[in-house]
Design a protein around this nucleic acid. Structure first.
Lengths: 113, 113
DNA sequence: CATCCATATAGGCAGTTGCCTATATAATAA
DNA sequence: TTATTATATAGGCAACTGCCTATATGGATG
């Protein structure tokens, strides 16, 4: 039950749901996500840390950038749960705009606060 | 997204997950749930209120007792999500004990504090 | 009516959350 | 090395959570 509870807790936050869907669309760095969510970079880092600790996402260094991406889950229940959530969220307007935006954003061009 | 978020938030609590599975097993009154969860009656009432506000459960008066039961959902995504969660939780030891206990408990015989 | 009983509500408290600003870290570039 | 840049971490703060105790509510019964 703890694993279920943990995943539900992690995903029961609007911004983390948005992050999840963005990472589904493409690998993202912290500043891209911060730009789309319109919150400060440290807040994004904290969300990503929680999601990473829960095993939902992973990261890879690319120079100065850290690219985050979804963990390819093999656990059947988790897999199904996430895909249902993903589909459900797919019909959300904000999510749709996020995906559009994250796909077109250029990480080199993001104004630095 | 708000609906998704709300449901995830409601279910991201261990005791509420246990309540959900108990109500799946049978209609329960507050004192039965309090007995199984080993928490005080007001705490159970509060959990139930939240779950009811989220539309997850409903209640019906039966004399002094209030019987709670799962809302028959027609919303497809919610339905699938809940059934996946339910299956996943079905393999949990604590949940299994809860179900056994809630099925055999006699509401007339619960020691009053 | 008055009492009893199951449940609901109010209020308090400690722990958690999500955001922020300030600062540290680590990789790159000059 | 020093400066720059992206990210991580620390610390603070207001809001929220889940539990408790005390009390209110309302149906059932004598």
């Amino acid at each position: 039950m703890n694993k279920v509870e943990q995943i539900l807790k992690i995903l029961s936050d609007k911004n983390r749901l948005r992050i999840y869907k963005m990472l589904e669309a493409k690998r993202c760095c912290v500043c891209e996500i911060a730009y789309v969510l319109q919150i400060k970079q440290p807040s994004v880092s904290q969300h990503l840390k929680k999601m990473k600790d829960a095993g939902l996402i992973m990261s890879e260094q690319e120079g100065l950038w850290t690219n985050y991406y979804l963990t390819p889950t093999s656990q059947p229940y988790e897999k199904i749960l996430l895909s249902v959530l993903s589909e459900w969220l797919g019909s959300d307007e904000i999510i749709q705009k996020d995906i559009e935006q994250i796909k077109s954003v250029d990480r080199e061009m993001i104004p630095k606060e």
